[in-house]
């Protein structure tokens, strides 16, 4: 029986670094497996030169800009699909296709269409943001309790008004869950796109590390990626708990 209490995550981070150190010591050469200190030193150096923020900023921008446009659009589309059988039937085949094809497979297509440009990466993230949030929003609308709508009807809130005042708010937790899923997937897509053609970003750092035979740089990229994902996921969860507690997803996952 271990009782880590509220410091559990701290022990976890400590354990993580200890395991890493042991593994690196076991391999024995930074040319194959750099130690945590090597990576930290590299990170410190890149922070000093400002290079780190440049690449981190590039990746963040590629995530946030298209998601900010795509996710609201996805929410609207999903709610429309949940509201109308015809709209749902129209878009459902495409949603199924999108959901069963890994978005990473579309990277060559995006590069073919837009060249190695920001637009290629934006379009991919936008696409993932739209369909993931739309699927979740549709599911959310479908799960709104009938009783709630009936109660609204009894109280004189009918039709479109009931939809916007009862159904949409009720499906908000599902939409926010979709936002989390979408960001997680989009991080994967952005990094893949950066690795297959870009001159900045965390994915580019990994590829540069590979080309220069610099495992420390590869590890900086991987480490930064893991941290970025955690910050994003925690950040969204925290923002929901803090600013939108009534739509918390905590008990629903």
């Amino acid at each position: 029986m271990i009782r880590p209490g509220r410091f559990g995550p701290l022990y976890g981070i400590l354990l993580f670094f200890i395991l890493w150190q042991v593994a690196a010591a076991f391999v024995g050469t930074p040319l194959l497996f750099p130690e945590p200190m090597d990576v930290m030193r590299g990170l410190a150096y890149m922070t000093e030169t400002g290079e780190l923020f440049e690449h981190l900023g590039a990746t963040l921008q590629r995530l946030l800009v298209p998601l900010a446009v795509g996710m609201p659009l996805g929410a609207v589309l999903g709610c429309a699909m949940g509201a109308s059988r015809d709209v749902n039937a129209w878009f459902d085949p495409y949603m199924r296709m999108a959901n069963s094809t890994p978005a990473i497979a579309l990277i060559p297509f995006a590069l073919l269409w837009f060249g190695v440009t920001e637009l290629a990466r934006y379009s991919l993230v936008f696409y993932v943001g739209v369909y993931v949030v739309a699927l979740n929003a549709r599911g959310g609308v479908a799960q709104v309790p009938r009783l709630r709508i009936k109660a609204a009807n009894t109280l004189g809130v009918l039709g479109a008004s009931a939809f916007f005042r009862v159904v949409v708010p009720s499906s908000f937790p599902a939409i926010l869950a979709g936002v989390r899923t979408a960001t997680g997937l989009c991080i994967m897509v952005v990094v893949a796109a950066e690795m297959l053609g870009a001159a900045s970003g965390l994915g580019y750092l990994i590829i540069r590390g590979r080309q220069n035979y610099d495992p420390t740089l590869i590890f900086i990229g991987i480490f930064g990626l893991g941290i970025l994902s955690i910050l994003f996921d925690r950040g969204i969860a925290f923002a929901i708990e803090r600013f939108m507690p009534r739509w918390s997803v905590r008990r629903r996952v």
Binding site: V191, G203, I227, S229, I230
Partner: peptide, 17 residues
């Protein structure tokens, strides 16, 4: 509670990286 963050980190590391 201890290993949770480790797996959160691992889950965030995209396979392609």
């Amino acid at each position: 509670a201890v290993v949770g963050p480790i797996f959160e980190f691992l889950k965030g590391v995209a396979p392609i990286s």
